[in-house]
Nucleic acid binder design. Structure first.
Lengths: 251, 251
DNA sequence: AATTTCTATTTGTATGAGTATATTGGAAGG
DNA sequence: CCTTCCAATATACTCATACAAATAGAAATT
């Protein structure tokens, strides 16, 4: 009975980090380790038996975790050759789960810059499409998101969630599944913006005016204004991030 | 011994569709079924035992396949609740493997249109960044890709591969991992362009001039020209696709 | 030196038993 | 009659073990 109890606590420990299923917990653990550079591209993993024993999980659970990471382009595995980390260029860095893993740890400043640059490419165009194609329902979602932002403020989790909902709604309103798939990437960038701002304690400029300008342009189906107001919103958001100060954009 | 032999043939059959491991084959089979609408969002899958028996594979293999699809955002599974198809908005439609599955079957015209629109957003900006940041090595890759395109022509698989390499090299030359991660998506769109052209037998306008114009702009580090030539390249590519004719762009 | 064959190692697949968890229906309480 | 709570139950999840397949690398052969 003592040993049974020990097993249970060990399992709970393994799954700790957020009450995930074990394979998910292991995938996350390995995934973040890779993202943080503990395992570099080209590195060979230990064998399945050793690895699963060291992590106190069954081989089944460990293998399912590896399958997840393979599906995200981080690993490859072949009999006799073992499982090794793929080059960064093969990683699906825009995968929502992967972005969440990055977001949990200390963010890679270079990648944040990349994400922001992606935002700069995607969102103005998205705003333009949204102004042209949005339905009234989609506009209503933006309305509510903006109201929540105003009510809660960006210092609360609810307010930040509303901010993400607003940008998400714009991408959804493009009626383009490929663009909409980038919602999590854009959302991650949005999230990091406020996080950085908060960390630096530079008490925030009110971001609502920029958002409202975009909103009104989309509501009025004014494509040119939608693009330009979004560009302005991004310019201000970028200015808010100390990344813009400490590392004044390459080129 | 007879039964052993039967087992072997059955397994080989299950894995057929390209000498993949069984879990990969099942993942692909289920994935394409979902993409083709056989299983719609919200649909519940049969239980693990039934499913694995029907497919003549072990629960282990079936479960690993499901893990892959969950990692790509297509499924979700919880004890007692079963495993069900997630709404389309959750699918990672830009995942390279998923694009390959789409590409194998009859393509969804709407999604091709979406992909092309994404190209129109991404590639002009990417060309501009590439003109600014490309290294000589990266330019050399483009040079060779262009040579191969010229040598082989777009009617050969080698030529088409070279076409993709060219566009890939541009994204790589942006030095932006987030943009580079979209290479497979852009590549899929590129690939479909020539496929469609070929299918309609409208014997191809020579695409080399457009490509060379972009190339020279990037070589000369002329950002404005890089953008404008890429826009022109995309305009012509779009015009080539009968999608542009039969379904004359929404809006 | 190049080619082929062998073999040892590693992942892949199968099976069965047992656990954990969330849903659902029903009982207790309002 | 409606709401809240609880327990029964179906389902995925985890584990342990055994065996099969594949392949990288060594060894033998030409």
């Amino acid at each position: 009975m003592g040993s049974e109890r020990k097993d249970v606590t060990e399992r709970k420990f393994a799954a700790e980090e957020g009450s995930l299923r074990i394979h998910q917990a292991i995938a996350r653990q390995l995934g973040t380790a890779i993202l943080m550079g503990v395992h570099k591209p080209g590195d060979l993993f230990e064998g399945e038996i050793e690895a699963s024993e060291r992590l106190h999980v069954s081989r089944t659970a460990y293998r399912e975790a590896v399958r997840i990471l393979i599906a995200k382009g981080m690993l490859e595995s072949r009999p006799k050759a073992g499982t090794r980390v793929l080059p960064r260029s093969r990683w699906n860095v825009l995968d929502p789960e992967m972005l969440a893993w990055m977001f949990a740890g200390e963010p890679d400043r270079d990648f944040i810059r990349d994400l922001f640059e992606l935002r700069g490419v995607i969102e103005p165009a998205a705003a333009e499409f949204a102004a042209r194609r949005r339905t009234d329902d989609q506009l209503a979602v933006m309305t509510r998101a903006l109201e929540d932002m105003e009510k809660c403020g960006l210092s609360t989790p609810e307010g930040r969630a509303a901010d993400q909902r607003f940008h998400h709604a714009i991408l959804a309103a493009t009626h383009n599944d490929a663009l909409a798939a980038l919602a999590s990437s854009v959302g991650a960038a949005v999230s990091w913006t406020t996080t950085f701002k908060h960390r630096k304690k530079l008490l925030p400029r009110d971001p609502l005016p920029d958002h409202k300008a975009v909103y009104h342009a989309i509501a009025a189906r004014d494509t040119a204004a939608a693009r330009s107001t979004m560009v302005e919103l991004l310019r201000l958001a970028l200015a808010d991030m100390d990344i813009a100060l400490s590392e004044p954009l390459r080129d």
